[in-house]
Deep mutational scan, measured.
Amino acid sequence: MQIFVKTLTGKTITLEVEPSDTIENVKAKIQDKEGIPPDQQRLIFAGKQLEDGRTLSDYNIQKESTSHLVLR
Rank of each mutant, 00 (worst) to 15 (best):
D58G: 03
E51N: 07
Q41M: 13
G10M: 03
P38A: 15
D39Y: 12
I23T: 04
D21N: 06
E16Y: 12
H68R: 08
G10S: 04
D39P: 07
V17W: 02
Q40R: 11
F4S: 07
T14Y: 08
N25P: 00
S65C: 08
G10T: 03
T9P: 05
L43V: 03
Q41S: 04
G10R: 04
S65H: 07
Q2F: 12
D39T: 10
L69V: 07
N25A: 14
Q40P: 02
H68E: 10
L8T: 13
L50N: 01
D32F: 11
I13L: 09
A46M: 14
V70W: 10
L43T: 01
F4H: 12
E51G: 04
S20V: 05
T14E: 08
K29A: 05
G53L: 08
T12F: 10
Q40N: 09
D58R: 02
T7M: 15
I30S: 00
T14A: 09
I3N: 01
I13A: 01
R42C: 15
P19V: 07
T55L: 08
G47M: 03
D32P: 02
V5Q: 00
E18Y: 14
S57H: 09
T55R: 11
I36Y: 12
K6C: 13
D39S: 13
I13N: 00
D21P: 00
Q41D: 01
T55V: 06
Q62I: 11
D52I: 05
E51H: 08
E64W: 13
E34A: 12
K11C: 11
L71W: 05
Q2I: 15
Y59H: 03
Q40S: 09
Y59L: 06
V17T: 03
P19D: 06
F4V: 12
T7E: 03
G53P: 05
K11F: 08
V5G: 01
E16Q: 11
V17C: 09
S65K: 07
S67E: 13
G53M: 08
R42Y: 12
G10N: 06
T22Q: 04
K33T: 08
T9R: 11
L8I: 13
I13D: 00
E34Y: 07
Q62C: 11
E16A: 09
N60K: 07
Q2A: 07
M1G: 03
E34F: 08
K48T: 12
A28P: 00
E51K: 08
R42A: 10
G47L: 03
L69C: 02
E34D: 05
I30Q: 00
K33F: 08
S67K: 11
K27A: 01
E18P: 03
T9G: 13
S67N: 11
I44V: 09
K48A: 10
R72T: 14
M1P: 01
Y59G: 01
K29G: 03
I36H: 07
K6P: 02
A28M: 14
S57K: 11
D58N: 04
T66I: 12
K6Y: 09
K33A: 11
S57E: 12
T14F: 07
I44R: 04
S20Y: 11
